[in-house]
């Protein structure tokens, strides 16, 4: 993974597969620390599986025996002087939280968050998403429930809607200096 936005896409995709109705994604860059949190209300994991979940040879898939998403995200955080934490409760949901030293030479760039958002909300996905991106210059929030209310029955995954959302996020990120993270 060359960008942290790709890790976010990968982890949030797991939330969608876990049957989450709402996935909250928060990216904050403050006081020299970048914090990324992905919280969902999906099916969660039991304590025994949670203990093994950062092991690349742990997966829920039956077709193969490797699951790289969580281990890669953990590695990206730890090699940038950060921390990684995952909390989960069966039936309630999962929260993944990673921190990164903003100025660490090995920190991957945040990358194209707008493309990640469009990929997540498009593609006929049933889950709702709440995005919160904060820097020292300001904060930008985006909630697909608000967008769906404005769309009044028009499908959120219509390409025209997705192009609008991408432009809107790019403009707002630029305003708070989020595109340089």
């Amino acid at each position: 993974m060359r960008e942290l936005a790709l890790n976010i896409l990968d982890i949030a995709e797991n939330s969608v597969k876990a049957g989450a109705t709402l996935v909250c994604i928060s990216v904050r860059a403050e006081r020299g620390l970048l914090t990324i949190e992905i919280a969902d209300d999906g099916c969660g994991m039991d304590a025994e599986f949670l203990k093994r979940v950062t092991d690349p040879f742990t997966t829920t898939r039956t077709t193969r025996k490797v699951g790289m998403g969580i281990p890669l995200f953990k590695m990206a955080a730890e090699m940038a002087g950060g921390t990684f934490r995952i909390e989960s409760e069966k039936g309630k949901g999962t929260t993944v939280r990673a921190t990164f030293e903003l100025d660490h030479i090995d920190r991957a760039p945040l990358g194209d968050l707008a493309d990640t958002v469009v990929t997540l909300i498009g593609g006929g996905c049933k889950s709702d998403f709440r995005f919160e991106i904060g820097t020292e210059k300001g904060c930008f929030e985006f909630d697909t429930r608000e967008l769906k209310a404005e769309l009044d029955g028009v499908d959120i995954s219509e390409p025209d809607v997705l192009v609008f959302v991408r432009d809107m996020i790019k403009e707002n990120l630029m305003d708070i200096g989020g595109e340089r993270l």
Binding site: E150, F164, E171
Partner: peptide, 16 residues
């Protein structure tokens, strides 16, 4: 700057 409220024009076009 664009906001969610600006989606109205696209919505009306799509609805048609």
């Amino acid at each position: 700057m664009k906001s969610i409220a600006d989606i109205k024009a696209i919505r009306d076009k799509m609805k048609g």
